[in-house]
Simulated assay, not measured.
Amino acid sequence: MDQIIDRLAPATTTPDLAGWTLLAVLVLAGVAATWWPAWRVLRLVVTLVHELGHALVGMLCGRRFTGFVLRSDMSGHAVTVGPAHGAGVIATTWAGYPAPGIVGAGLIWLATHGWSAPALTALVVGLLAALTRVRSALTGLVVLAAVAGAASLWWWGEDTLQAWLLVGVGVLLLVGAWRHLGSMLPRIEIGSDPGVLARATGVPAALWVVSFVVVLAAATWVVVTVLLVPMGA
């Protein structure tokens, strides 16, 4: 029990993320998010966060999260039950594309401030909860792999290693969020999130895409600002 409690607490000192190791982590994360053989697998992690973003915001808006699926072509679908109209369903639909960037920036901020262990704890708990809502074998495999990776790092990783890897995951999610958004352009399909939002609100789909860009740009600014400090800039 003492060991579990120790692994729930933030680091007593800020992890040392300066130097070539951090640069190597950033480069590897960037390669993982852009090199096709790696991206074709890791993009499912970005899709997972996208769909869970829909689910979390839906539940915060009072909707009931009933299940979700991930597909190998980078698409997915999360189902929340509630009113068919109103602010809740709009917020739920909007949340998907910004979610990986926001989560990525949050992980990097927490990692660089010594909060890797609590962040990993929250990830494990959230993923275990999500596991009860999977609706396909591929979805279950991805969630189980994410749980295993996060739990292993939480239990066996020391503070600096946890911070390095969370920074890497954060960069992967942020770059992946931009890639997901870019893959939707230049043609916005009627069944895409901004297409659905346009039909529901009358606001052009392009403006919804702009809102995604603004949020991801803010997340990118946070990440660059946070990482400039340990890199000595």
Results as ranks from 00 to 15, higher is better:
Ala11Met: 09
Val41Trp: 15
Ser183Lys: 13
Gly106Met: 11
Thr93Ile: 15
Pro83Leu: 08
Val31Phe: 10
Gly86Val: 11
Ala99Phe: 03
Gly96Lys: 00
Ala84Trp: 07
Ile108Gln: 08
Cys61Ile: 03
Leu70Asn: 07
Trp109Ile: 14
Ala205Thr: 05
Ala55Arg: 03
Val215Arg: 01
Gly176Cys: 06
Val196Gly: 03
Arg199Thr: 10
Ala99Trp: 08
Leu107Ile: 01
Leu216Asp: 15
Thr225Glu: 14
Gly149Leu: 10
Gly96Ala: 02
Glu158Leu: 01
Ala18Leu: 00
Leu165His: 00
Gly114Thr: 06
Pro230Leu: 05
Ala198Ser: 15
His113Tyr: 12
Asp2Asn: 15
Leu26Thr: 02
Ala91Lys: 02
Arg135Trp: 12
Arg71Ile: 04
Ala78Val: 05
Leu52Phe: 01
Gly149Thr: 05
Ala117Ile: 03
Gly19Leu: 08
Asp159Glu: 15
Val89Ile: 14
Ala119Arg: 00
Ser116Asn: 05
Ala218Pro: 06
Val134Ser: 08
Val134Asp: 12
Gly191Arg: 14
Asp193Ser: 09
Phe65Gln: 07
Ala105Arg: 04
Ala95Pro: 02
Ala38Trp: 12
Thr92Glu: 14
Leu172Ala: 01
Arg40Pro: 05
Trp178Phe: 05
Ala151Val: 07
Ala91Val: 07
Val46Phe: 02
Ser75Gly: 13
Thr47Cys: 03
Val57Asp: 08
Leu165Asp: 04
Trp94Asn: 01
Leu123Met: 15
Leu173Thr: 03
Ile108Tyr: 08
Val69Ser: 04
Val142Trp: 03
Ala55Gln: 04
Ala200Tyr: 10
Leu131Ser: 13
Leu120Ile: 03
Leu23Lys: 11
Val147Ser: 04
Leu174Cys: 02
Ala177Cys: 05
Val210Ser: 12
Trp155Asn: 07
Ala32Lys: 02
Ala177Pro: 00
Ala117Pro: 00
Pro194Ser: 08
Gly88Val: 08
Gly104Val: 08
Val224Met: 12
Gly195Met: 07
Glu51Asn: 04
Val46Ile: 11
Leu44Ser: 15
Val175Lys: 00
Ala24His: 03
Val45Asn: 06
Trp221His: 14
Gln162Phe: 06
Ala78Thr: 15
His54Glu: 12
Thr92Tyr: 10
Val103Gly: 03
Phe68Glu: 09
Trp154Asp: 06
Leu60Ile: 09
Thr220Tyr: 12
Trp36Arg: 13
Val41Leu: 09
Val89Gln: 07
Leu123Thr: 09
Val223Trp: 14
Met1Cys: 10
Thr220Leu: 11
Leu42Met: 04
Thr132Gly: 04
Val41Glu: 12
Val223Ser: 09
Pro186His: 07
Leu17Met: 04
Leu107Tyr: 03
Gly30Asp: 09
Val169Leu: 14
Ala95Val: 05
Leu131Thr: 13
Thr201Val: 03
Ala38Thr: 10
Arg133Thr: 10
Ala148Met: 06
Leu138Met: 00
Leu127Tyr: 11
Leu141Met: 08
Ala33Arg: 06
Phe65Pro: 08
Asp193Leu: 10
His180Phe: 12
Trp115Ser: 11
Pro204Lys: 07
